[in-house]
Simulated assay, not measured.
Amino acid sequence: MRTSRLATILLASAILTGCTRSAGLEDLVPRPSMEVTNSISRPDAPVAEANETASQDEPAGTGGEASAPVVEAALVAPDKPSPAAKALLDGTVHPQRFRDAHPINFGKASPRNLAVHGVDVSRWQGNIDWPKLRTQGANFVWIKATDGGDHLDPMFRRNWNAAALAGVPRGAYHFFYWCRTASSQADWFIRNVPKTKGALPPVLDVEWNHLSECKKRPSREQVLEKMQVFMDRLEKHYGQRPIIYTAPDFYRDNLKGAFPNHPFWLRSVAAHPSKVYPGRDWVFWQYSGSGLSHGVDERIDLNVFVGSEGQWRKWLAANAG
């Protein structure tokens, strides 16, 4: 069918406009998988896992697939030091002003007695006012980036850049999916999370998720092997030792006595970590999944660093990229 010159111009303009929208980039990313952390709701719609060839870095029977299509990390990598990197130098620590929808009395072991608080976020927190959230006590943040080998959190790019602009030291976390190989998941994380100066170490989130379509629960030996493969790949790429985030049931089944040289971030929302994870040193404690704060409309996970302000600055100097 013939098209008028005006219609042709309008059509070309629409195409160019569509190509410059950030939503167009989101269309390149597979839809969300079923993987979620303990503290957030399950997505509405499942997505089938790709049936691809297993990688060679793990033994047969661990349920492997190859990596999904790539979205280049360079899309979010800044060309110059970010405000978040500069925040590492000024050492500003904001006192926490968070509230809690379901407050717990931790007694003398209250996280409020510790100086440096922060948050972790994902798509479920919606649009965040990062400057406001920082003033409420978000002195650090870990941002949901990936899970499995084919899902990028649709808010990751926005949160990653906006947190940096607000001067919040930030890192990214990956939710591990037990029906994929560790190597394919490490590749997916690396391809979507930029190697950025001043970023916090990457986090490996390992949990049992009863809502997942993947019902596989590998043996302790297989779990530790998969985790080692994933963390070695990330440490080699980013030059930072990954932090392990976990919950009580998964820790009990798999992680007692394991990875003594890795920092741990422990979920313990009803008691101090010393009671839930006896004998385990930790660096970060997630003490609430029902936090409330100015700057975010939804509930938010609340976390705290183990030491003083001075120890926090030393930790940042030694561990931030």
Rank of each mutant, 00 (worst) to 15 (best):
W178F: 11
W178Y: 12
T181S: 15
T181K: 05
A182D: 02
A182N: 04
S184W: 06
Q185R: 08
A186D: 02
A186K: 03
A186E: 02
D187I: 11
D187V: 12
D187S: 14
W188A: 07
W188N: 06
F189E: 00
F189G: 00
F189A: 01
I190S: 02
I190Q: 01
I190K: 06
I190F: 04
R191H: 13
R191P: 00
R191Q: 12
N192W: 03
N192R: 15
N192E: 03
V193M: 06
V193I: 08
P194N: 10
P194Y: 08
K195P: 00
K195Q: 11
T196N: 05
T196C: 07
T196A: 09
K197W: 05
K197P: 01
K197N: 04
K197T: 09
K197I: 10
G198T: 10
G198R: 03
L200S: 03
L200C: 12
P201I: 13
P201D: 09
P202A: 10
V203F: 07
L204N: 01
L204T: 04
D205V: 04
D205Q: 02
E207D: 10
H210R: 14
L211H: 14
S212A: 14
E213P: 04
E213H: 12
E213S: 11
K215Y: 10
K215S: 13
K215A: 13
K216I: 14
K216H: 11
P218G: 12
S219K: 11
R220P: 01
Q222P: 00
Q222T: 15
L224C: 07
E225M: 15
K226N: 05
M227C: 14
M227F: 02
M227Q: 03
V229E: 03
V229K: 07
F230G: 03
D232W: 01
R233Q: 05
R233T: 14
R233M: 06
L234Y: 01
L234G: 00
E235Q: 10
K236V: 04
K236F: 02
K236M: 02
H237A: 06
H237G: 00
Y238Q: 04
Y238T: 05
Q240K: 06
Q240V: 05
R241W: 00
P242N: 08
P242Y: 05
I243P: 00
I243A: 06
I244C: 09
I244P: 01
I244S: 07
I244A: 07
I244N: 04
I244V: 15
I244F: 10
Y245L: 09
A247V: 15
P248C: 11
P248T: 12
D249F: 13
D249W: 13
F250Y: 14
F250C: 08
F250V: 09
R252N: 11
R252D: 11
N254C: 13
L255C: 08
